[in-house]
């Protein structure tokens, strides 16, 4: 049994269709809708302990896939299984074994010191004092958070906040984490630290990591396996070297490859 399984998954959004030729009056009273396919017939499986880079241009369907895996969205057709359960129907149950970071958002309690959110999550994820303390100390040390643990979240820099978000996501030792652009807007030093941290925790705790990113450094340094999607369709699924030999022309950097693939 794989930890994560997607089988022929499609996801349609209903979006408002605005027609220039219709009057504003009829647009208001009789709006028309059309379906937009965000994810189109995607299948893949992920085994425990894998580090997978989920890449694609903006709007390719990456975040939609992650929302389906967390159980916040249900697929229009196809099957999604996480821990051999339907994530939508077992959302709160699956949440105990899962961590998620949405790069632009924060779980942190805005007005309080970072350590307060840690304590809240300790209770929320039913951690024993021992497990909590051990994991928290490890995270604080690895992500170098000691200096700002007592500061109010609203006073933190983006890099500090993102490290705190990551620490929260790993606090309950989840089996799987979904990271949606975890290095967005961060400086090179913070990025390096986060990458080293992800490699370490994957090695030591066997955490499965699925991350979406636009940063070629993230892809090169973290992702052993790459899944590439474009306009909702799966283009490539395989290891890093296979990706390079499939798409690389002489002298290409990873960035050159992505530019070409996204443009097609």
């Amino acid at each position: 049994m794989s930890q994560i399984e997607l089988k022929n998954v499609c996801k349609d959004y209903k979006i408002r269709k605005r027609d220039e030729s219709r009057s504003r009056f009829s647009e208001f009273f009789r709006p028309r809708y059309e379906a937009k396919r965000a994810v189109d017939d995607i299948s893949f499986t992920i085994e425990p302990g894998e580090m997978v880079g989920y890449i694609g241009s903006n709007g390719a369907g990456k975040s939609t896939t992650i929302k389906m895996l967390t159980g916040i969205l249900s697929p229009t057709t196809g099957i999604v299984r996480v821990f051999d359960r339907d994530p939508c129907k077992n959302r709160t149950k699956n949440a105990l074994d899962m961590g998620v970071v949405f790069g632009q958002r924060t779980q942190l309690l805005w007005d309080l010191p970072v350590r307060d959110t840690f304590e809240l999550f300790k209770t929320m994820y039913r951690l024993s004092d021992r497990d909590f303390k051990k994991q928290r100390d490890m995270l604080v040390e690895t992500l170098e958070m000691e200096s700002f643990l007592s500061q109010a979240v609203r006073q933190l820099s983006l890099g500090q906040r993102m490290r705190a978000n990551l620490a929260l996501c790993f606090l309950h030792q989840p089996k799987v984490v979904y990271l949606d652009e975890p290095t967005i807007g961060l400086d090179v030093l913070v990025k390096d630290r986060i990458r080293a941290f992800l490699r370490q925790i994957n090695r030591e705790q066997g955490t499965t990591v699925l991350l979406t990113t636009h940063d070629t450094g993230d892809i090169e340094e973290i992702a052993e396996r790459l899944i590439l999607i474009d306009s909702g369709k799966l283009l490539y699924d395989g290891d890093h070297t296979g990706f390079l030999s499939k798409y690389r022309d002489a002298g290409d950097t990873l960035e050159d490859i992505l530019k070409r693939v996204y443009a097609e």
């Binding site: 159980g71 916040i72 959302r91 149950k93 949440a95 958002r105 779980q107 929320m124």
Partner: peptide, 8 residues
């Protein structure tokens, strides 16, 4: 989305 991904 964050609140829905919590275990309560």
């Amino acid at each position: 989305a964050l609140k829905l991904s919590r275990p309560c």
